[in-house]
């Protein structure tokens, strides 16, 4: 979303406020979560598999 588009959001003081910025930040968070979790998983695998 551009700055121009975001200024066309409905007035904030209503129940139809759409937290698009929040969704974007949470998407980044989930991506970071997957990346960091996977990095530890790689360490686990690199230390060898036990059965």
């Amino acid at each position: 979303m551009t700055d121009a588009e975001s200024t066309e959001m409905p007035a904030a003081d209503d129940e139809h406020f759409k937290p698009v910025g929040t969704m974007f930040i949470l998407a980044l968070f989930v991506a970071a979560l997957i990346l960091l979790w996977a990095s530890v998983y790689v360490i686990l695998i690199s230390r060898g598999v036990t059965v």
């Binding site: 200024t7 406020f17 910025g21 929040t22 968070f29």
Partner: peptide, 24 residues
Amino acid sequence: AFTVIASLEYGARRNGGTGLVGWI
């Protein structure tokens, strides 16, 4: 995480914040 950030975004946009993350 969703509700708190959305509450913050709501407040920041009322203060004139714009953009996808520029409102921060």
